[in-house]
């Protein structure tokens, strides 16, 4: 038997995360990128160093838009559950319908019509990620609210507020974090797609999509490879970590 101190739910969740091998690989890749990208200007010139330094713009923007989108999605899903049955049905059917649309085209449309502003782009990219996060959030919360220990807490005389604070919030934290994480790869993909078409980040902000566009325009296959590979690698790591988080949140020991 293990000692109780290592059997806390957080320990078990982290064990499940580290048992998920793609997630561990993804974390390693992402950590390496996080070190290499800021250090890229020190490496001097060359296609690889250029591609690495372009990651600054892409990753920072993905983080920003992903946080906004993930946060908005979590708020959306939580409000839907909190506001009662009718609101829930309306809000979730909107989210489901939006999820079915190619929202990335909205990013292009907005950039094309209103010019390439960082704020507008961040907002639109966040919007592409939010509905999927909202759907995940609502599902997680609904299944959490059905769990028996909440009924038991009610039988133990706890008020609704105490149950929310002590039982629902702590148990929702990890599943909702896992749901919100899915906004990061979506944001990165949407931004890269828009930048590839020249409708993404403003000129002067380096990004993988922008570099790819330049390389393709010049017809230089050697220059295409580094940003394309780095982009694919980051997308894969983000998705793998997302899967690992979901396994950590959902699994039973």
């Amino acid at each position: 038997m293990r000692s109780p101190a290592t059997d806390t739910p957080w320990h078990m969740a982290s064990r499940r995360l580290t048992a998920h091998r793609p997630a561990v690989a993804g974390l390693a890749v992402l950590a390496a990128l996080a070190l290499a990208v800021p250090a890229a200007p020190l490496l001097g010139g060359g296609v690889v160093a250029d591609a690495l330094s372009a990651g600054q713009g892409s990753l920072a923007f993905a983080l920003l838009a992903g946080l906004i989108g993930g946060g908005a999605g979590v708020v959306w899903g939580t409000l839907a559950v909190a506001l009662g049955q009718r609101a829930e049905r309306a809000m979730m059917s909107l989210a489901n319908r939006l999820m079915g649309l190619p929202l990335v085209l909205g990013v292009l449309l907005a950039s094309g019509l209103a010019g390439r502003g960082l704020g507008l782009l961040a907002g639109m990219v966040a919007l592409t990620a939010a509905p999927a996060v909202a759907v995940l959030t609502q599902g997680e919360l609904r299944s959490l609210l059905r769990r028996e220990f909440l009924t038991a807490a009610q039988a133990s005389g706890l008020s609704g507020r105490a149950i929310l604070r002590r039982h629902i919030a702590p148990n929702a934290a990890l599943p909702l974090a896992a749901a919100a994480w899915t906004a990061l790869p979506r944001a990165l993909a949407a931004e890269s797609f828009a930048s590839l078409l020249g409708l993404g980040l403003p000129d002067g902000v380096p990004s993988w999509g922008g570099q790819l566009a330049t390389a393709v325009r010049l017809g230089d296959p050697l220059a295409v490879a580094p940003p394309a590979l780095l982009l694919a690698l980051s997308l894969w790591s983000l998705c793998a970590i997302g899967d690992g988080l979901r396994a950590a949140a959902g699994g039973r020991p």
């Binding site: 739910p9 028996e148 220990f149 002590r166 039982h167 702590p170 148990n171």
Partner: peptide, 10 residues
């Protein structure tokens, strides 16, 4: 299910 009636996080 007594185990499910206890909060897994506490």
């Amino acid at each position: 299910d007594p185990a499910a009636a206890l909060d897994p996080g506490q």
